[in-house]
Amino acid sequence: MFPSPGLMAQSLLDGIFLGFLYSLMALGLSLVFGVMGIINFAHGDFIMLGSYLVWLIANSVRTDPSLVSIVTVPLFFVVGAAIYTIIIRPVFGKEPLIQIAVTVGVGYVLQNTALMFFRAEPRAVQSTALNLYIGLGPVNIHAAKLVTALLSSVIVIGVHYLLTKTWVGLTIRATAYDREVATLMGINVNKVYLLVFGLGIALTALAASLWMTFGQANPYIGTSFGLLTWVIIALGGLGGVSGLLASSLIVGVMQSLTMTLASPTISLTVPYLVFLVVLWFRPQGLFGRRE
């Protein structure tokens, strides 16, 4: 039985909205990996912990989850900078396996901190101003998802401009291009890395705030978001913001269509299978190049 065109359109639309949010989720990871070459396996767990924090704050002061980001984003920036200084900097230049292992350890700590404080129950924010639907022909547009998609794309493009049009962005790109020459040009590489890692983690807090306007927090979303964001980077390559957006939308739509056409239980299988096959045949990603 094939679903009605209306249902298909709805599913497609939801997938696109989700895709924009995914691009924001993957943005921080892409920055950290692209500039520093650091493989962060804890990225998804930061989103997870951010979601729980949003739930905690939004419910206790009765405010909209998207506003909570005013608190969580600076907090996560500081946390990111601290993690960089204490944990990431000492493993620079060590075997990749040890680098990955350290971030896996960070992810483990975050996951089980969440489990300890919030138990394994899924949590959703009770009141959000955006929880209304706009009917548009056969589809219903969830305002929260629409706003999330709009804000995500604005931020992704904003960061793109930050990187390409500003002095700070030039410094970051120079460091990514050649660390040693950048040092010779008088760039404080360590400061750049601190900034980039802090920014990468701060962006997860923002993504978490937007996610909580319609989603749920549970200790396991960390793993699935972590893998999904890596899948997006693998598909998009490190070519730039257009590759990131395109691959995020593909993953979002793929996931949404799988849920509608097949079953929600296998919503991750399809993007992962595509990821495996793309990795085999186009290791540089669909849209960009990778070193």
Partner: peptide, 10 residues
């Protein structure tokens, strides 16, 4: 164990 892994790695 997570902390132990970080300590060992670093």
């Amino acid at each position: 164990f997570g902390i132990l892994l970080i300590v060992v790695g670093v």
